[in-house]
């Protein structure tokens, strides 16, 4: 299959203003217009980052907490807009960033599949068609009509992941998804990821699970504290990261 560049990240930067301004009321905002003083702090989450991801690739992203991994994933997903640079993506993007998200605890698993499926951009027909696959893959058949507040974190992860891969992504963004699941499901998920990647998709995997990253990713990108990137072979980058 011919390789296409699914994600092109071209020199992007992202800044955040941290301050009181986010929680200001209308009156306070009005007053500060005149006083002109507003305590603020500028945080550079990402600076001049460039890389790309082609179809058929699993790219791992590692780095310490607060290094900007999730910000990067959100920028690829189109949730955040970069302050500088460009992001070009080709194909349908599915992002699993915070697992509990989207799932409504007081609804049943079945209702959740329909809700989250449509959040992932699936039509009702598509969800109906995929429904059995989702249930089967998650191995939660006997809980279809159970409200999911009774689910464990691992079960929710199974459910969320199963819906995400059924949504037929071209670009699958996984942010710390495998941190709660058991080994069997992890193995099964990775096999599934391999399969969709072989069919022409690409996967960006953010994880603190270094053995997982080392074993399954084709390339690894490490975002360092000073916002520079170390890119390359999984075993090399991971061992460098461990030494740091």
């Amino acid at each position: 299959m011919e390789k296409i560049k699914r994600i092109v990240i071209d020199n992007i930067s992202k800044k955040f203003m941290i301050g009181y301004s986010n929680n200001m009321g209308a009156l306070a905002r009005f007053v500060s217009l005149f006083s002109g003083k507003e305590p603020k702090r500028l945080i550079h989450a990402l600076e001049n980052l460039s890389f790309d991801v082609s179809s058929g690739e699993i790219v791992g992203i590692i780095g310490n907490n607060g290094s900007g991994k999730s910000t990067l994933v959100r920028i690829i997903a189109g949730i955040y807009y970069p302050d500088g640079g460009r992001v070009i993506t080709k194909g349908k993007i599915i992002s699993l960033i915070n697992l509990i998200v989207g799932l409504k605890e007081r609804l049943t698993m079945k209702e959740n599949i329909f809700l989250v499926g449509s959040l992932f951009g699936m039509s009702q027909e598509e969800i109906k068609k995929e429904f059995n696959n989702i249930v089967e893959f998650s191995e939660l058949k006997e809980f279809v009509n159970t409200k999911i507040y009774q689910f464990s974190a691992g079960m929710m992860q199974r459910l969320a992941f199963s819906i995400a891969v059924s949504a037929k992504p071209d670009i699958l963004l996984l942010d710390e998804v495998f941190e709660v699941g058991d080994e069997d499901f992890k193995k099964k998920s990775v096999d599934k990821i391999r399969k969709i990647v072989e069919d022409g998709a690409c996967v960006v995997l953010v994880s603190h699970d270094l053995p997982l990253v080392e074993k399954y990713c084709d390339r690894v990108i490490w975002i360092k504290e000073d916002k520079s990137l170390i890119k390359g072979e999984p075993n090399k980058v991971v061992s460098q990261y461990k030494e740091d």
């Binding site: 959100r74 993007i93 992002s95 699993l96 915070n98 998200v101 989207g102 951009g121």
Partner: peptide
């Protein structure tokens, strides 16, 4: 808020 921060719908 978490939904908005996680999925681009």
């Amino acid at each position: 808020r978490w939904l908005i921060k996680s999925i681009n719908f």
